[in-house]
Amino acid sequence: MTTWYGYSGGKLAKAAAGSPVEVVVAPEPDEIQELVKRYGIDLHDLHSALDPDELARVESETDHLVLILKLPCNYTGEGKLLFTVTSVGMFLFKSRLLVVSPNEVEFSGDKVMHAVKDVRDVMLKIMYGIIDHFLGHLKVINMLSESLEKRMTESMGNRYLMDMFALEKSLVYFVNGLSSNQVVFEKLVLETNKVRLKLTKARFDILEDVVTENRQCQKQAEIYSDILMGLMGAHASVVNNNISLLMKRLTVISIVFMPLNVVAGMGGMSEFSNWTSGVPWYLAYGIFLVSLVPLSFLTYLILKRSGIDRGESETLKRTAMLRSLPRIPGRDRPKRRKGDIK
């Protein structure tokens, strides 16, 4: 799909064919050949813009500049909670800009760019759009991780653990993509590229802001990644602890019933009938069954005095106390805003 953009009165808007900015999304093979003939660009560079595994880079050709950047893929839900990244290519000529990508491209940066007068302004808006796209997905990943954290404390299964692993994998992709973009942005800030791009002082300041915003976004993704790694390790420890507590309870139950089994085995022998030959059978067996109750209670008291369940009781008390504490202001989950997932 091909969309043309032009700028009039300082605003970027869709325009007729032949306008200065051409955005091509998921081109067909015949469209790729047409772009190569029309703009005289290298076929390898064009395929690199459509390759999700291509690293971000900047190259200078005779009459144009090639920028390959990474941006998040639009979330579809087919990969469950897996967020991936893809590539976008910008081919900057003197008065034209060709943008090629497998996914739709966003234009942002209206707060710092009040007017669009040149294709270089459009290029900077796309860079801001890429960073905003990353930030939007990071907010969604943070909300999903908080929701999974609450569910993981109540479950011993692998479902939520696999969801956390998918989010951790997504953050690895994001950190790699942001770091790759950072290398390209820092190269563009160099004086030689500044002259080649023909950036004015105002545009160069905006480019430096792009470098700063991308660095902050990368740092945020790294922090989220570290938190998820720690959370997954904590979940594994919680599961092991729950299994230990379960085995402990089963052990206590078996110990309580062990003396009862011994006494019940003695009652099932023929010697018991000989011992109670002078007593009616219903009275003898009734007394025998009633005596099992205080015996089991006495066994439980002995185990309790020995402190075998003291650790579990203290853990339950601490958990109940923490749940009764008031919530810390400012830690409520942020509401999902429209447009977080693109």
Score class of each variant (00 low, 15 high):
M1T: 05
G6C: 00
A16F: 00
V21I: 04
V23I: 03
V24K: 05
E31F: 01
I32W: 02
E34C: 04
V36F: 01
K37A: 00
R38T: 07
D42P: 09
L43S: 12
S48P: 08
P52R: 05
E54S: 09
A56M: 06
A56R: 11
S60D: 12
E61C: 07
L67V: 09
L67I: 08
L71V: 05
L71S: 07
E78K: 13
T84C: 06
T86A: 02
F93R: 06
S95T: 14
R96S: 05
V99C: 01
P102Q: 03
E106N: 06
F107A: 03
F107H: 03
K111G: 07
K111W: 01
A115Y: 00
V116I: 02
D121G: 12
D121S: 04
V122S: 04
M123G: 12
M123D: 07
I126L: 03
Y128M: 11
I130G: 04
D132Q: 10
K139A: 06
I141Y: 00
S147T: 13
M152C: 07
M152Y: 07
M152I: 12
N158M: 03
Y160I: 03
L161N: 13
M162C: 04
D163K: 06
M164A: 07
M164L: 08
A166E: 11
A166R: 10
S170P: 10
L171Q: 04
N176E: 11
S179N: 13
Q182A: 11
V183D: 14
V184P: 12
L190A: 09
T192A: 11
V195W: 03
A202I: 01
A202R: 06
D209H: 04
R215L: 07
Q216S: 12
K219R: 13
Q220Y: 13
Q220C: 11
E222Q: 13
S225V: 06
D226M: 08
G233M: 12
V238A: 13
V239F: 02
S244R: 11
L245V: 07
K248F: 03
S254C: 07
S254Q: 10
F257T: 09
V262R: 05
V262M: 07
A264F: 00
M269W: 01
S273D: 11
T276V: 01
S277L: 04
G278C: 04
P280I: 02
A284L: 00
I287Q: 14
F288Q: 03
F288M: 02
P294L: 00
L295Q: 12
S296F: 00
T299K: 08
R305Y: 04
R305T: 07
R310V: 11
R310I: 09
G311D: 14
E314A: 09
K317I: 03
K317P: 10
T319H: 14
T319L: 08
T319K: 15
L325Q: 15
L325Y: 00
R327G: 13
G330Y: 00
G330Q: 01
R333V: 10
K335C: 06
K338M: 05
G339R: 09
G339T: 08
